[in-house]
């Protein structure tokens, strides 16, 4: 039994905002199935009482003095924008017709 179906891959692509083609779905479904079956090996390890590690070094909050320091200028911040207008990022519409 496959670990993941073609429909599930299509769902993942939607969640990840990837407008994949039908041809890609055919290829990815097989490849993701092979990868997931292989990485599922982590389940063989008895680790019920083992704490998870998210980071190799202990993480603590890092604080700094609350003082103003130079940041990017508006021009710098917009320098890589696909489109800018009136000193702002111009984006496609974010609300649907019915909203």
């Amino acid at each position: 039994m496959p670990a993941i179906s073609r429909d599930e891959v299509a769902h993942l692509a939607r969640l990840a905002r990837l407008a994949v083609t039908d041809e890609e779905l055919d290829v990815f479904a097989g490849q993701l199935d092979v990868i997931l079956q292989s990485v599922a090996r982590v389940g063989e390890v008895a680790a019920d009482d083992i704490p998870p590690t998210s980071h190799a070094v202990p993480l603590t909050n890092v604080f700094r003095e609350d003082v103003v320091r130079p940041g990017l200028s508006q021009q710098q911040a917009l320098s890589g924008a696909p489109e800018a207008e009136d000193g702002r990022f111009r984006v496609p519409r974010i609300l649907g017709e019915e909203q």
């Binding site: 990485v39 982590v42 389940g43 390890v45 680790a47 083992i50 704490p51 998870p52 590690t53």
Partner: peptide, 15 residues
């Protein structure tokens, strides 16, 4: 739990 969580536990065992 089965994937990401378990992988993080394995990470502990490798350390």
């Amino acid at each position: 739990d089965a994937y990401y969580g378990q992988a993080q536990k394995v990470r502990t065992l490798i350390s």
